[in-house]
Simulated scan of single mutants.
Amino acid sequence: MEKFTHLEGVAAPMRIINVDTDRIIPKQYLKTIKRTGLGKGLFADVRYRDDGSEDPDFVLNQPAYRNAKILVAGDNFGCGSSREHAPWALADFGIRCVISTSFADIFFNNSAKNGLLLITVSPEDLEKLFQDAERGANATLSIDLEAQTIKGPDGGTLHFDIEPGRKHNLLNGLDEIGTTLQRDAAISTYEDKLAERGWV
């Protein structure tokens, strides 16, 4: 998993509440178990017109936000079904961080396991970030996970909270398997002792 330490980039504003995982990655894209190639299906139902052409009104189709690395989103982002394809699609598009006031629990956990940083802020701070994001490509946000800060284009800084274990894993690029393998020596020693006792 790619480490998340510091991220600087354009933030795309999505002032929509209750964006569910079917909106993030529609069901027709769930046939694959690969984590790559799903970026093209990200928000497909609203990103493309019926004829397959891009809807120029959709935020990620606008020139300023085509290379956005951060998404500033409305309340309850990632609700709905538990599909892990949702964080895969965001990551494959290039989104490394989503900022909102709240996230659905399963989506929140799936995102961390796939190297995405989800940041929860107050409604007042979210509004400030929306205003920054709506300034377009000339206004970038800078996120420092170690310091747990978001710096706006004018130098203002917000602090955010994150669970220490989740922070450690993101900083070190560890998913659950990687975390377990950090204790490989202790696990091997334990298994050797079991074998000596004839329990294996």
Rank of each mutant, 00 (worst) to 15 (best):
A68I: 11
L71R: 02
G74P: 10
D75G: 08
F77V: 10
G78S: 11
G78Y: 13
S81M: 14
S82P: 06
R83N: 05
A86V: 08
P87L: 07
L90Y: 14
A91Y: 12
F93E: 08
G94I: 03
V98T: 09
S100V: 04
T101P: 10
T101K: 13
F103I: 00
F103M: 08
A104P: 10
I106D: 01
N109T: 05
N110V: 03
N110I: 03
N110F: 07
S111T: 00
K113T: 02
N114Y: 13
L116D: 00
L117V: 00
L118R: 03
I119H: 03
V121T: 02
D125M: 04
L129E: 00
Q131C: 05
D132F: 08
A133D: 02
A133S: 10
E134A: 03
A139I: 07
I143A: 01
Q148K: 11
I150K: 07
I150Q: 04
I150N: 09
P153W: 00
G155Q: 10
H159W: 05
D161H: 04
G173L: 14
L174P: 12
L174E: 02
E176D: 15
E176H: 15
I177Y: 14
T180A: 15
T180V: 15
Q182C: 09
Q182K: 13
R183C: 08
R183G: 08
R183E: 11
